[in-house]
Amino acid sequence: MPDDRSPALNTTGGRAPSDEELDAYIRTRLALIGIDLSVLPEEDPDAPADQAGVHRSIRNFLRNTVPALSAYELDPQAWPPVLYPAALPPVGEERVGER
C-alpha cells in the first residue's frame, strides 16, 4: 500500500513520486555510497530489521520531513547556521540587561 502523500508535495505543482520511484532513489543513493541492504531479509517482522521496513521508513522520511524542512523559510540575513548554539564567550563585565 502506498504511504501517505505529503501535502507539501502537492503545492509544487508536480506529481508526487510513487513508492517505486522513491525506492529507486533509495537504492541508487545507497549504491553510490556502498551500502548493501540485501543482507537483510526482504520482509520479516520478527527480524530486527528488514528491507521492506527500511524502505518504508525512508519513504516516509522523504515524503514528510524532507519537503517540509525544505519549504521552511528563514530570513537569510538573520540567522547564519551554527552547530553549537549554547557556546559562550568567557564571562565579561557586561551584565545580562536590566532585570
Binding site: I33, I35, F61, T65, L69, S70, P80, P81
Partner: peptide, 18 residues
Amino acid sequence: QGLFLSADEYLKGQRARH
C-alpha cells in the same frame, strides 16, 4: 534516514537552531 537529508536541509536546521 540520516542519509537522505541534503546539505541545504541540514543547514536550514542549523539556522533554525540559531
